[in-house]
């Protein structure tokens, strides 16, 4: 614990330096001419659900830019062919610290923003899991496990979904024939299907790459992609970036280092000391997402119910939740 505090203190001071280094890439791309923003305003309606970001122009106007325009890096474009190879010499892993999760849902939202997903499309889902009748349930953020023996990839008839050398399992929306066999094969329910056409699929403003998973296509499958487009820029995936509690660690197994943005730790040590495990290990899928068990939780379970009604409703069938409701705690 002491160790951690020192860490955090140091990182605060370092924040600017890190920012400076990392943004030096993005700043280059994002210095742009303001008129461009305004010129297109009539052409496209604002998407009702899309979040907007407000910017001030030097002549005192406020420009609202849809947040989906953030995180587009045309200069980092990776062709579908290249995206099958993966980032050389890396083996990505994720560690999710269940003891710190309080169902803040920021990872879900961050991911949806980054991948231009609708409200109900969740690559990252938060489940309420109860291991046994005596144990208190815990929040369980679950994305694609990027398995080392991926059942989904095994069954794909076209190779539309594939596993790369850097551990990442991706879907090529331009190859997928929508047979949904992979969906039925994935024991983690990580895959979602595009059941209908959506206006956003028509956005052809940038060439398609399986690495960004945007814009998606009707009748094909999508899932968590570990954000290789961000990784290539040395940035954490959207979910890890947006978690306020630092629940999600991400890193390279070869380096044996994972980070949640604020804290950098050794992967093997973390797993060893905290009893890290993989979900449904017995199925033999060899996931690359590790969990640190929900022991000594930082938050009460009730704290996780500070969410909108719809989300609350999702957990109504968990017996423990019914109990809490009866006691009036939720």
């Amino acid at each position: 614990m002491k160790n951690k505090q020192i860490e955090e203190g140091a990182t605060d001071r370092r924040k600017f330096l890190k920012l400076g280094l990392l943004t030096s890439f993005t700043a280059i791309a994002s210095t742009s001419i303001i008129t461009n923003l305004a010129a297109q305003e009539e052409e496209t309606e604002k998407e009702a659900t899309g979040e907007v970001m407000r910017l001030l122009t030097p002549d005192g106007k406020i420009v609202e830019v849809s947040a989906s325009n953030i995180n587009k890096y045309p200069e980092a474009f990776i062709t579908p062919e290249e995206s099958r190879k993966g980032i050389p010499d890396r083996k990505f892993v994720m560690v999710i610290d269940l003891a710190k999760c309080k169902n803040a849902r920021k990872c879900v939202e961050g991911c949806q923003k980054g991948h231009n997903l609708d409200y109900h499309q969740e690559f990252m889902q938060i489940k309420l899991i109860q291991d046994n009748p005596l144990a208190e349930p815990y929040w369980f953020p679950k994305n694609c496990m990027h398995c080392d023996e991926p059942p989904c990839v095994k069954v794909c008839p076209t190779g539309a979904t594939f596993k790369r050398e850097d551990n990442i399992v991706l879907v090529d929306n331009e190859r997928c024939i929508g047979c949904k066999f992979c969906v039925t094969s994935c024991p983690y329910s990580a895959r979602i299907f595009n059941w209908e056409h959506k206006a956003k699929f028509d956005d052809k403003s940038q060439p398609y790459s399986p690495e960004t998973n945007v814009p998606g296509a009707t009748g094909t499958v999508m899932k968590c992609d570990f954000c290789p487009d961000l990784l290539r820029q040395g940035l954490l995936p959207h979910c890890a970036q947006s978690c306020p509690e630092g629940v999600i660690y991400f890193g390279d197994r070869n380096e044996d280092i994972v980070t949640n943005g604020a804290e950098t730790v050794r992967f093997s040590e973390l797993i060893n000391k905290r009893g890290g495990y993989r979900h449904l290990e017995h199925l033999g899928t060899k996931p690359n997402v590790y969990y640190l068990p929900a022991v000594d939780k930082l938050y009460e379970l009730e704290d996780g119910f500070d969410v909108n009604e719809e989300v609350k409703e999702r957990y109504k069938n968990v017996p423990y939740v019914q109990e809490l409701k009866k006691q009036g705690k939720i």
Binding site: S30, T31, S32, E41, T44, K46, V65
Partner: peptide
Amino acid sequence: ALLLCTNGI
């Protein structure tokens, strides 16, 4: 560099 921008008000 140009920012790809679909909408702005």
